[in-house]
Design a binder for these strands. Structure first.
Lengths: 339, 339
DNA sequence: CGCCCCCGAGAGAGCGTTCCCGCAGGTGGG
DNA sequence: CCCACCTGCGGGAACGCTCTCTCGGGGGCG
């Protein structure tokens, strides 16, 4: 759209004012709903606006107001993974979108893939494109939140950071979720309960393993641990290893539904029946949990709610309100057929 | 961030220029990489920039340049559905993101849920927030593309519109995909081939049914049709009806993987073995197609590529280049175990 | 040795909006 | 009946940047 672009010029507030026979200031008042405008003048301006098809220039507006009424949701994971099997990011998007929509704000979704895009996201968010930023990261070591906070840009992150928290965060109660799962297994008479843990450089992986350990400790049972990376394939491998380590195990708690699905497959291949021989519990309550054979008992984390909460916090910060440095949302056991 | 916000002021180009001992114009030249700046001056300015932590104010910049270097991807579907079982939207996002990333442009994702948000999207895109818009819609009757085109805002849509196309569109070859599926069934000796069609108010639904009919016609076979709405549940219902209509059928082509998954379930409940008694082919090549029992033979549509293509077209339009009014991407049969 | 050209840098005019003032006219109270 | 106050509108500056125009100076060529 260079200067030589075809078609008529975009109408400006000036032209609206001229057509309505008022000053630019008054036209602006009408656009922004100021009450101190006489009804007949308001009418005239509104008519001029529809006649010309006027739409305010956001750049000019935010140049002076210092606001954009839009908020970024930064997803720090390659786009490929962001929207793959795992509905984690999509659900956060959905939740944040709901809240911002209701508040008349715009959600701007950004993905960080490469190093280059990392820099561009920084430029974008620091460049005044948005009034605040939500950072949804799977790994805790992202420098972005700190950078933004240092520039006084409102920031909220998901997941307890690995180090000392520098910005408000929202997380689900991973540890309690794991405890719920293990307790259910114990309550239903399981004796040798193994776990397929998540990556131990991610808080979610760490906390879920801690919950598993804690609950087993409370009932004096031994832990049997293999580690995966949250994917289905890693679940298959981990399950095989667990079976090799302890052929007598009668239950397994996987730190993700995908790994649980992998475990189901490995168990079937090994000739074990689920839940008769081995009970399986997953974590996440993915879509996939309902379609496995048998359907997965799993720990549901309220991810949509997590997105909603992040957005709400952000709005409150922007409004100058104080917010808790940490918000933890409860998890819940969904009992299906696998345990 | 009102005027009373805490923390230091944002550095401006003016302050950078002052610190480097040059004029604002020269500082601007350095920021924008103009070649006509003496090396030692460039050095001084760059040093001032890092010292002050200067980041250009995008609003001010785009106010004068009339560009924002960002592009909107509008998803016209409720956020709930946008990121549900179906990876359609996620894949488009992924593809578009790749291309725009590479071009140094920013992707702005917007979702249209309610009528109110529809209006906000219009305001946003017309308000000069973006240089161009991709509209990804499942239904053909969206007024947004037309509105944008009328305002000379570059637009690309996905899917052939139901009416007369007014803006360039990108689609996958739904009809040919359906033909591929039916041909495969014929080639493997199936005689009575039914279909679970998609909604007939969506182009994808229409085209896939057309392909099915055309291919059957070519070999003088009768068509057996039930209709669903692309969901799993509707697939179950449609399959039951098909079995009632023609108990002798030996194959079914479903216009979506989810409906095919539903068909699998209905067939199992009816005591038919897949693929021994009845062959099943889906459409989409969803994630889910690999996890069904048995894994689905299906028609893969290159959705990521579709997203890429939309973005590429948009960039070309913005650059003033001409583009084809229609681009159709090929589909491909993925043979697994269900047929 | 002189002229012209070109390269590098500065001055200044906008871009479209908001918002602070200032002013006019009308209203109520003293 | 006059003055103070309030309500409603207009003028103008400012937001931070880009870009054109202009100008000065140095080097090359005649």
């Amino acid at each position: 759209m260079g200067p030589g672009a075809p078609g008529r010029e975009r109408p400006t507030l000036e032209s609206v004012a001229a057509r309505a026979g008022v000053s630019r200031a008054t036209a602006s008042r009408v656009v922004n709903g100021s009450p101190t405008v006489a009804p007949h003048i308001r009418e005239a301006v509104l008519r001029a606006i529809t006649d010309l098809g006027y739409v305010p220039n956001q750049a000019a507006r935010s140049l002076v107001t210092q606001r954009t009424d839009s908020f970024a949701l930064v997803l720090t994971e390659s786009a490929g993974r962001v929207f793959s099997d795992d509905p984690f990011f999509p659900s956060i998007v959905q939740g944040a979108s709901q809240v911002l929509d209701a508040a008349g704000k715009q959600l701007v979704l950004m993905m960080v893939n490469s190093g280059a895009s990392h820099e561009r996201v920084e430029q974008y968010t620091l460049g005044g494109h948005v009034d605040g930023v939500m950072v949804a990261s799977l790994h805790g070591a992202d420098p972005l939140p700190g950078t933004l906070a240092r520039r006084n840009i409102p920031v909220v992150v998901n997941g307890r950071p690995l180090g000392r928290p520098t910005v408000p965060y929202v997380d689900v109660d991973n540890e309690d979720g794991a405890r719920l799962a293990v307790r259910h297994l114990l309550d239903t008479g399981r004796r040798r309960i193994a776990t397929i843990a998540g990556p131990q450089d991610m808080v979610a992986g760490i906390d879920r393993l801690n919950g598993y350990r804690a609950e087993l400790n409370d009932s004096d049972r031994r832990s049997i641990i293999a580690t995966g990376d949250f994917t289905r394939e890693s679940g298959i491998a981990a399950m095989r290893q667990l079976l090799a380590d302890d052929p007598e195990l009668d239950a397994v708690f996987a730190a993700s539904d995908l790994m649980a699905a992998g475990a189901l497959r490995a168990l079937r291949q090994a000739g074990r029946r689920v839940p008769d021989d081995v009970a399986v519990i997953g974590f996440d309550d993915n879509e996939i949990a309902r379609y496995t054979e048998p359907p997965l008992t799993t720990v549901r984390q309220p991810i949509i709610d997590l997105g909603r909460t992040m957005a709400r916090l952000l709005l409150r910060i922007v409004d100058g309100g104080g917010v808790d440095p940490a918000t933890v949302l409860p998890t819940e056991l969904v009992v299906r057929e696998s345990a």
